[in-house]
Amino acid sequence: MAKRVSLFVSCIVDQVFPNVGLAMADVLERAGFDVGFPEAQTCCGQPAFNSGYREEARQVALHFLDVFSKSENVVVPSGSCTAMITHHFAELFSNDQLNLARVHALESRVYEFSRFLLDVAKVEDVGARLDDVVTYHDSCHALRELKIKQGPRRLLSHVRGLELREMDAAEECCGFGGTFSVKFAEVSGGMARTKIDSIVRTGARTVVSIDSSCLMQIQGAISRAGLSVRTLHLAEVLASR
């Protein structure tokens, strides 16, 4: 019998980039997993947490715990949401032993998508094909909180027809930062444009990342600049045939 996984697609993938969630489900099913989507899921609470509204973040986190407590493994197409759950939920409940225990019971079963493929599913080659020249954007929370650096690149290296060209500023923030992107819009936009300059210098046609929020920022700025570079989530690349 196939092993079961639950998707936590994140609010942004659910509402804005559904193709990323569908692609992730495709890849996981092809890797032999029975994929479920608990329909009561919404958000991880990070927008409130990062804006200083801890009580509101706690309420959303509690909802997350209610929805996923019974799930076996939870797979998330985002380093940022994963880090919120695995690194910051505990902070939210530091004075609430009961829920802190629920957090600890769940957090080790929550995986960022690329890490799940490599560490749990143990697949590097998912049988994907994409004739393209791509560059990879290291999203900050994946890189610095989850220490994800080589994993996505290893997965990309097995995609047939794909050439990966590293950009000089791969590890530099795209400038999204949640509400930072609208509270300090011009600074955030400036950071995005710096990032795009680095992307363009590689000559790549596509930017790949494991976080849709970064890609929303990068693609939004690319679109504004009238450039022909596109963005794809890693799941979309790995689902290509």
């Binding site: 509402q15 819009a185 995005a192 504004r224």
Partner: peptide, 24 residues
């Protein structure tokens, strides 16, 4: 500063309800 993604015609959860699972 940037363009905004247009909302998709259907959210993930809507599409999930009619999705046919891929067998391995």
């Amino acid at each position: 500063q940037r363009d905004l993604p247009a909302p998709p015609h259907q959210s993930f959860r809507q599409q999930w309800r009619t999705r046919v699972p891929r067998i391995n």
